[in-house]
Design a protein around this nucleic acid. Structure first.
Lengths: 234, 234
DNA sequence: GGTGGAATTTGCGCTAGATCAAACACGCGG
DNA sequence: CCGCGTGTTTGATCTAGCGCAAATTCCACC
């Protein structure tokens, strides 16, 4: 196994407040895995043998319903933990995690979690803080779904993606991984058709520029206006 | 202050695996509070000075949006923790908690959380397990909102309430606290009008019996059929 | 350079459910 | 027992956005 360096994880907010020596001990027990685009990191209902840290790439976390619907729960960015089912008392993964692009992840066996949690209190505190913010996110999603219309939800989703993985390009801010209309639909609880119509309309107004699996937000602030329901309509 | 007895909390799943002496120490630091119906236990954005355990009654956890919408996040039943913002690294409460009926709660100052967590590992494990299942719940809600229609969501909400707080009466299973059409609408992301129409229809079919702030589920299994989208329609 | 498949666009009709509006019942306090 | 307020029912419209269908564009690979 290639030697893993603590520099891989030093500076990540999850590992904040942990001594260098401890970082070494932590990294020492991980193995690093390369995951090709469209391959899955872990799968819904599968035994949760490991938990993961995304080092590079982007991962889409998706839940499938029995009746064949797919709902995207979140996108994971580099530096984030995923698959921490064990820390929450679960024995199986609650969702599928699939690589949106080629990715590099670190994996630790789940049985290390209790040890880590007691040996490195700030690690566990940071992790639960993150869990808290995900709970928060999920509640926000519920609220959005209950009170906002599709147009606002899609605008919000784009803004969230921009904030998370925006990359400056000359035309504006590019969402830095391939994302289809269908993907956006699964994030917002609508259909690819409606997303397509919205993007077309926004493109006409100069808010965004989009192509096949590619979205560039040209005028974020005007998109914010739409997200708040103060768009041209209404 | 009346002496609080460890029997108040022994047997609750959150305190599972904790020695009697420790239970005494835990209870010893709590104060018990009576909360009248419609009064709030804690409020959104307020400083999270305490966390709570509901001993008796039912509490509705509601989030308010800036534009005046209210979304019910969950109902708390006796034995459940609430307001554990501190455990998740938050300093303010994320929602309002209002008593659906007269309630009795135990309250601990938030600053005790870190001590409790390290002194009673199983307490913290149990708590995070509960957080995990709430995260799970929230995701389920998002999925429901994205993929199911109102009829199914309302049926699901009733079934959840029945499971949580159902009380057998001669006509069927009563939801054991006052709940209005409006309340159900806020749980399911719809309007009181639609809820009223659904309940009327179900009453005609003999699935439920309902009155002012009162719902009795007569035939749970048939309601399950509706919840799964295999109702008479479609 | 062509070609097949996937992603996208766009039109059209339709319906679930919101919105608006009004009448109604229940239960409480006087 | 009466009235009043809050919760509920029910009707009548109106529309956002879904479902279906067909045309089109783009890309990857041969």
């Amino acid at each position: 196994m290639a030697s893993l360096d603590r520099s891989l994880i030093a500076g990540l907010s999850v590992f904040e407040g942990i001594a260098a020596a401890d970082l070494d001990r932590i990294v020492g027990q991980a193995r690093s895995i390369r995951v090709a685009r469209d391959q899955s990191v872990f799968e819904q209902e599968q035994e949760a043998h490991s938990f993961f840290l995304l080092l590079d790439g982007h991962v889409r976390v998706v839940k499938s319903t029995p009746d064949g619907h797919e709902v995207t729960v979140r996108y994971i960015s580099p530096g984030e933990l995923m698959g921490i089912a064990g820390a929450l008392g679960r024995t199986t993964y609650p969702a599928n995690a699939v690589a949106a692009v080629d990715c590099v992840v670190l994996a630790w066996p789940s049985h290390l979690w209790p040890t880590f949690a007691t040996s490195f209190p700030s690690f566990s505190a940071n992790t639960y803080k993150m869990v808290g913010s995900r709970l928060q996110d999920a509640h926000m999603r519920v609220i959005e779904m209950s009170t906002e219309q599709v147009e606002q939800r899609v605008a919000n989703a784009l803004l969230k993606l921009v904030k998370q993985s925006g990359k400056k390009v000359e035309e504006g801010i590019l969402i830095d991984f391939p994302i289809s209309r269908q993907d956006i639909a699964e994030m917002t609880g609508t259909t690819l058709h409606t997303v397509s119509r919205l993007l077309s309309a926004w493109e006409d107004q100069g808010l965004v520029k989009s192509g096949r699996q590619r979205v560039v937000v040209v005028e974020p602030h005007r998109l914010v206006v739409v997200a708040e329901g103060r768009g041209s309509k209404r």
